[in-house]
Amino acid sequence: MSAQPSERRLARRFARLAAEGRAGLVTFVSAGDPDIDTSLALLKRLPGAGADIVELGMVFSDPMADGPAIQAAGKRALKAGITLKKTLDMVRAFRAADAETPLVLMGYYNPIYVYGNERFVRDARAAGADGVIVVDLPPEEDAELRPLATAQGLDFIRLATPTSDDARLPVILTGASGFIYYVSILGITGTRSAGADVVAGAVARLRRLTQLPIAVGFGIRTAPQAGAIAAVADAAVVGSALVERIAANLDADGRALPALVDDVTGFVSALAKAVRDARLPSRAAGVAE
């Protein structure tokens, strides 16, 4: 298996987006939320609805960086019987139906560590994953996973944050691959939103230090916000707002209502349109104010 960046789906996708002159939409859902079948059906529909890259959350019982929406999603998924192995089964099923859309696994370290680092990167790659984000594995600790991942051709995506100062950024950027995930707020997922002008400044600072594409996430909740971020970054990541849509389509017992997948993908389409329109000349002028 080749590990050349040019042959990787993420690099290919960002190259295509650049050629189209637009940013991408990255969607996040937790694997197995609200149940494994519905979650897989939704995952498969996301690219058709306009997701350029899909992130699939590997559920953990103690998600320290997540707000109430994603905490609740994880709880639903665990109740439905999700495991890391079943999450990788979902990846395999997604990949069988979609050869091109990059899929990134995102989660916390303990389930990976317990699964076994070598076994995880091998199985994740074989299932068709393209990258991995491990929220609680900073550069100081990732030597036990990152080289294994990149050797398998799995991009190891690192996070940069508003606290990443000039001393910190080189530590983060050295060894990162795939893209840089810029966490646009101080805080957990789904709680605050950053202004596009502040994000633009942060992205510009990152661009001076790295050639990697920059995706911005945490706090993008609406189509206009996604559009504003898409005007300044290479991709906009939407997670909690999608997960809240899932929660809004459950019956009193927590079971998926028939309209769930259509409703969530409808929201994704609206986000995708805003992202695609963000750099049309008429809009670009507005955003640059």
């Binding site: 960086a65 370290y109 900073p138 996070l159 944050t161 606290t163 100062d165 910190r168 966490v183």
Partner: peptide, 12 residues
């Protein structure tokens, strides 16, 4: 031991 925390916390 170690420092298994979110990147936001690392500088702190």
């Amino acid at each position: 031991g170690g420092r298994f925390v979110a990147e936001t916390l690392m500088p702190l």
